[in-house]
């Protein structure tokens, strides 16, 4: 298969397959989780379940000062690469074109050099995350092969996107094909790995806030 044929495949059927798996995966995971149901609480409520849940979805993004002190590296590196992923995925002009092409929605892009810098910073943050994962006793204990795989599929689009933009090492079609392929890999595995937290985090945080809020504590 020539590079250009590979590119055409990843832009066409490949992207289609990845989209199908992503959409199907996310939806079945949501049903799988929510249909398990949860018993309604019979204890007399001291606070609202729904509102507290919604509040925690937002407030859990801000760590407490004490928690920040104790987990600062995890929090800073984590924030940086999540922010970086957001910027590179959603504020880079060619990506906005893709989203517009698929959904019809569009918004202004950041200047390309800014996205370029953010991508580099994100890659560095992800490398820090990996080193931390190996150096920290607790993280080493927790780490599974699934964590390393998830790390790889997360950093891969950033790295391939960076080298595709700067056109390093391969032909134009190959660079773009490899980049899109790495994104498709991310799309395919997202619903079935810990990367599912991209959408289950809203449920988890809501439940946490709801459970706590019912007892009158803002979690």
């Amino acid at each position: 298969m020539s590079e250009i044929a590979l590119l055409e495949w990843v832009r066409g059927p490949g992207f289609q397959i990845a989209t199908i798996i992503l959409v199907v995966g996310v939806i079945i995971r949501i049903f799988e989780i929510l249909m398990l149901g949860r018993k309604s609480n019979l204890a007399e409520a001291k606070g609202s379940e729904f509102a507290s849940g919604m509040r925690t979805i937002v407030t859990r993004s801000v760590p407490t000062a004490e928690s920040f002190k104790r987990s600062s590296l995890t929090i800073v590196a984590g924030y940086v690469f999540h922010f970086g992923l957001f910027v590179t995925i959603f504020l880079y002009a060619p990506h906005i074109l893709l989203i517009k092409g698929v959904t019809g929605l569009a918004w202004p892009a950041l200047p390309t050099p800014v996205v370029d810098i953010v991508a580099v910073v994100s890659i560095i943050a992800l490398l820090v995350v990996l080193v931390h994962r190996f150096n920290n006793k607790v993280l080493r204990y927790l780490t599974t092969s699934g964590d390393l795989f998830a790390w790889f599929v997360t950093i891969a689009p950033l790295v391939t996107g960076y080298i595709a933009f700067h056109r390093i090492g391969m032909s134009g079609p190959a660079l773009l094909a490899v980049h899109i392929l790495s994104v498709e890999l991310l799309m395919v595995v997202l619903p079935f790995t810990k990367l599912a937290h991209a959408f289950t985090i809203f449920m988890a945080r809501w439940y946490n806030g709801a459970i706590s809020g019912y007892r009158g504590v803002q979690s």
Binding site: P13, F15, Q16, I20, V23, I27, I28, F31, G101
Partner: peptide, 24 residues
């Protein structure tokens, strides 16, 4: 643009979602 998939992704996603709801 080169970054836009060549296949009709929006429609694909809708059909996939409908099927997935049933499987889900």
């Amino acid at each position: 643009a080169l970054s836009i998939p060549t296949a009709d992704i929006g429609e694909t996603a809708l059909y996939a979602a409908a099927g997935a709801a049933a499987v889900g």
